[in-house]
Protein backbone atom coordinates (compact mmCIF):
# COMPACT_ATOMS: atom_id res chain seq x y z
CA UNK A 1 0.00 0.00 0.00
CA UNK A 2 1.31 3.32 -0.98
CA UNK A 3 1.49 6.04 1.60
CA UNK A 4 -1.63 8.02 2.15
CA UNK A 5 -2.48 11.59 3.03
CA UNK A 6 -5.28 12.76 5.29
CA UNK A 7 -7.90 14.78 3.42
CA UNK A 8 -10.30 17.07 5.17
CA UNK A 9 -12.91 19.23 3.47
CA UNK A 10 -14.53 21.72 5.81
CA UNK A 11 -17.46 23.99 4.99
CA UNK A 12 -19.44 26.36 7.23
CA UNK A 13 -22.08 23.65 7.59
CA UNK A 14 -19.65 21.00 8.74
CA UNK A 15 -16.94 18.65 7.56
CA UNK A 16 -17.81 16.95 4.27
CA UNK A 17 -14.86 14.61 3.85
CA UNK A 18 -12.46 13.27 6.44
CA UNK A 19 -10.50 10.36 4.99
CA UNK A 20 -7.10 8.89 4.26
CA UNK A 21 -6.60 9.12 0.50
CA UNK A 22 -3.94 8.31 -2.09
CA UNK A 23 -4.08 11.46 -4.18
CA UNK A 24 -5.99 14.73 -4.25
CA UNK A 25 -6.53 16.89 -7.31
CA UNK A 26 -7.83 20.41 -6.86
CA UNK A 27 -8.33 23.64 -8.80
CA UNK A 28 -5.73 25.99 -7.37
CA UNK A 29 -5.08 29.61 -8.07
CA UNK A 30 -2.48 28.89 -10.73
CA UNK A 31 -4.27 25.91 -12.24
CA UNK A 32 -5.06 22.40 -11.11
CA UNK A 33 -2.62 20.68 -8.82
CA UNK A 34 -2.24 17.22 -7.35
CA UNK A 35 -1.09 16.39 -3.86
CA UNK A 36 0.42 13.09 -2.78
CA UNK A 37 1.55 11.88 0.63
CA UNK A 38 4.31 13.87 2.39
CA UNK A 39 3.85 16.95 0.30
CA UNK A 40 5.77 20.03 1.43
CA UNK A 41 3.80 22.62 3.44
CA UNK A 42 1.67 24.48 0.96
CA UNK A 43 -1.03 27.12 1.02
CA UNK A 44 -3.11 28.12 -1.94
CA UNK A 45 -6.38 29.79 -2.74
CA UNK A 46 -8.97 27.62 -4.44
CA UNK A 47 -11.16 28.48 -7.37
CA UNK A 48 -14.62 27.20 -8.11
CA UNK A 49 -14.23 23.80 -9.68
CA UNK A 50 -13.85 20.11 -9.11
CA UNK A 51 -11.94 18.41 -6.38
CA UNK A 52 -11.21 14.75 -6.92
CA UNK A 53 -9.48 12.17 -4.80
CA UNK A 54 -8.63 8.51 -5.03
CA UNK A 55 -8.62 5.75 -2.48
CA UNK A 56 -7.28 2.63 -4.13
CA UNK A 57 -9.36 2.16 -7.26
CA UNK A 58 -12.20 4.31 -5.98
CA UNK A 59 -12.41 7.83 -7.32
CA UNK A 60 -14.64 10.56 -5.92
CA UNK A 61 -15.59 13.96 -7.32
CA UNK A 62 -16.72 17.00 -5.43
CA UNK A 63 -17.86 20.36 -6.65
CA UNK A 64 -16.27 23.03 -4.49
CA UNK A 65 -16.63 26.77 -4.46
CA UNK A 66 -13.99 29.28 -3.50
CA UNK A 67 -11.81 29.15 -0.44
CA UNK A 68 -8.32 27.98 0.28
CA UNK A 69 -6.38 24.86 1.13
CA UNK A 70 -3.48 24.09 3.39
CA UNK A 71 -1.05 21.18 3.32
CA UNK A 72 1.02 20.45 6.40
CA UNK A 73 2.14 17.39 8.35
CA UNK A 74 0.85 15.00 5.71
CA UNK A 75 -2.61 16.49 5.96
CA UNK A 76 -4.50 18.50 3.41
CA UNK A 77 -7.32 20.73 4.56
CA UNK A 78 -9.77 22.52 2.28
CA UNK A 79 -11.71 25.42 3.66
CA UNK A 80 -14.41 26.16 1.14
CA UNK A 81 -17.80 27.82 1.20
CA UNK A 82 -19.55 24.78 -0.19
CA UNK A 83 -18.72 21.25 -1.26
CA UNK A 84 -21.04 18.74 -2.88
CA UNK A 85 -20.48 15.21 -4.04
CA UNK A 86 -21.20 14.56 -7.71
CA UNK A 87 -23.99 12.15 -6.90
CA UNK A 88 -25.73 14.68 -4.65
CA UNK A 89 -26.05 17.29 -7.35
CA UNK A 90 -29.37 18.09 -8.93
CA UNK A 91 -28.39 18.28 -12.59
CA UNK A 92 -31.61 19.90 -13.77
CA UNK A 93 -31.20 22.68 -11.30
CA UNK A 94 -27.61 23.22 -12.28
CA UNK A 95 -28.60 23.31 -15.96
CA UNK A 96 -31.22 25.94 -15.26
CA UNK A 97 -28.74 27.96 -13.23
CA UNK A 98 -26.31 27.75 -16.13
CA UNK A 99 -28.86 29.05 -18.61
CA UNK A 100 -29.83 31.85 -16.26
CA UNK A 101 -26.24 32.91 -15.76
CA UNK A 102 -25.54 32.80 -19.50
CA UNK A 103 -28.55 34.96 -20.19
CA UNK A 104 -27.44 37.48 -17.62
CA UNK A 105 -23.97 37.60 -19.07
CA UNK A 106 -25.38 38.13 -22.54
CA UNK A 107 -27.48 40.98 -21.21
CA UNK A 108 -24.51 42.51 -19.50
CA UNK A 109 -22.44 42.22 -22.66
CA UNK A 110 -25.02 44.14 -24.69
CA UNK A 111 -25.83 47.16 -22.55
CA UNK A 112 -27.57 46.39 -19.28
CA UNK A 113 -25.50 47.80 -16.44
CA UNK A 114 -27.76 46.57 -13.69
CA UNK A 115 -26.22 43.11 -14.06
CA UNK A 116 -23.40 42.25 -11.72
CA UNK A 117 -20.95 40.63 -14.10
CA UNK A 118 -18.64 39.13 -11.49
CA UNK A 119 -21.56 37.56 -9.74
CA UNK A 120 -23.05 36.15 -12.92
CA UNK A 121 -19.67 34.76 -13.93
CA UNK A 122 -19.26 33.10 -10.56
CA UNK A 123 -22.75 31.64 -10.86
CA UNK A 124 -21.92 30.28 -14.31
CA UNK A 125 -18.69 28.79 -13.00
CA UNK A 126 -20.52 27.08 -10.17
CA UNK A 127 -23.20 25.72 -12.47
CA UNK A 128 -20.64 24.38 -14.94
CA UNK A 129 -18.63 22.71 -12.19
CA UNK A 130 -21.75 21.16 -10.78
CA UNK A 131 -22.72 19.73 -14.14
CA UNK A 132 -19.21 18.43 -14.66
CA UNK A 133 -19.00 16.88 -11.20
CA UNK A 134 -22.39 15.25 -11.68
CA UNK A 135 -21.44 13.80 -15.07
CA UNK A 136 -18.33 12.11 -13.67
CA UNK A 137 -20.10 10.18 -10.99
Amino acid sequence: MAQQIALEVVTPTGAVVNEEVDIVNAPGYGGDFGVLANHAPFLSTIKIGILSYEIGKKREFLMISGGFCEVSNNKITFLVESAEFGHQIDVDRAMKAKERAEKRLAQAASHDESINVTRAEAALQRALSRIKAASTR
Binding site: P12, G28, Y29, G30, A40, P41, F42, L43, S44, T45, G66, G67, F68, S72
Partner: peptide
Protein backbone atom coordinates in the same frame (compact mmCIF):
# COMPACT_ATOMS: atom_id res chain seq x y z
CA UNK B 1 5.32 26.94 16.83
CA UNK B 2 3.43 24.47 14.71
CA UNK B 3 4.10 26.13 11.40
CA UNK B 4 7.82 26.55 11.80
CA UNK B 5 8.29 24.79 8.47
CA UNK B 6 8.49 27.01 5.41
CA UNK B 7 5.32 27.10 3.37
CA UNK B 8 4.91 27.29 -0.35
CA UNK B 9 2.43 30.02 -1.10
CA UNK B 10 0.43 30.16 -4.23
CA UNK B 11 -0.02 32.97 -5.18
CA UNK B 12 2.00 35.26 -2.88
CA UNK B 13 1.14 35.75 0.77
CA UNK B 14 -0.19 39.20 0.00
CA UNK B 15 -2.52 37.97 -2.70
CA UNK B 16 -3.81 35.18 -0.50
CA UNK B 17 -4.46 37.74 2.21
CA UNK B 18 -6.39 39.80 -0.30
CA UNK B 19 -8.71 36.86 -0.92
CA UNK B 20 -8.88 35.78 2.69
CA UNK B 21 -9.77 39.08 4.29
CA UNK B 22 -13.23 39.41 2.73
CA UNK B 23 -13.83 35.76 3.59
CA UNK B 24 -12.78 36.49 7.13
CA UNK B 25 -15.43 39.19 7.33
CA UNK B 26 -18.06 36.76 6.03
CA UNK B 27 -17.03 34.34 8.71
Amino acid sequence: AKISGEYIYEPSVEEIMDVLQPLYLNV
